[in-house]
Amino acid sequence: MDAETIAFAHRMFDLARSGDAGELAAQLAHGLPVNLTNDKGDTLLILAAYHNHAAAVTVLLAHDADTGRVNDRGQTALAAAVFRKNTATVTALLAAGANPDGGNPSARETAAYFNLPDMTALLDRPAPVPPQPPGQ
Rank of each mutant, 00 (worst) to 15 (best):
F13K: 10
F13N: 10
F13M: 13
F13I: 06
L15Y: 02
R17V: 11
G19R: 09
G19K: 03
G19C: 10
A21H: 04
A21Q: 05
G22E: 14
G22T: 12
L24G: 04
Q27G: 01
L28H: 07
A29Y: 03
H30A: 14
L32C: 12
P33I: 09
V34Y: 01
V34G: 01
N35F: 05
N35C: 10
N35P: 05
T37A: 12
D42A: 03
T43F: 02
T43M: 08
L44P: 04
L44E: 10
I46M: 14
L47D: 09
Y50P: 00
H51E: 14
H51A: 11
N52P: 00
H53C: 10
A55Q: 14
A55L: 12
A55W: 02
A56I: 03
T58W: 00
V59Y: 00
V59I: 12
L60M: 10
L60C: 05
L61Q: 02
A62T: 11
H63G: 01
A65Y: 01
D66P: 01
G68K: 07
R69Y: 01
N71T: 02
N71I: 06
N71F: 02
N71E: 06
N71V: 04
D72Y: 05
D72W: 01
R73K: 14
R73A: 15
G74S: 07
Q75S: 15
Q75W: 15
T76S: 09
A77S: 05
L78Q: 04
L78E: 13
L78C: 06
L78D: 07
A79E: 08
A79Q: 04
A80N: 08
V82D: 10
V82M: 08
R84F: 05
K85H: 12
N86R: 06
T87N: 10
T87H: 13
A88W: 00
T89N: 06
V90T: 08
T91K: 11
T91N: 11
A92F: 00
A92E: 05
A92L: 08
A92N: 03
L93H: 04
L94G: 02
L94P: 00
L94Q: 07
A95H: 11
A98M: 10
N99E: 14
N99Y: 09
N99M: 11
N99Q: 13
G102W: 07
G102F: 05
P105E: 12
P105C: 09
P105S: 08
S106L: 12
E109W: 08
E109A: 15
T110W: 13
A111T: 03
A111L: 11
A112D: 12
Y113R: 15
Y113W: 12
F114G: 02
F114T: 01
F114Y: 13
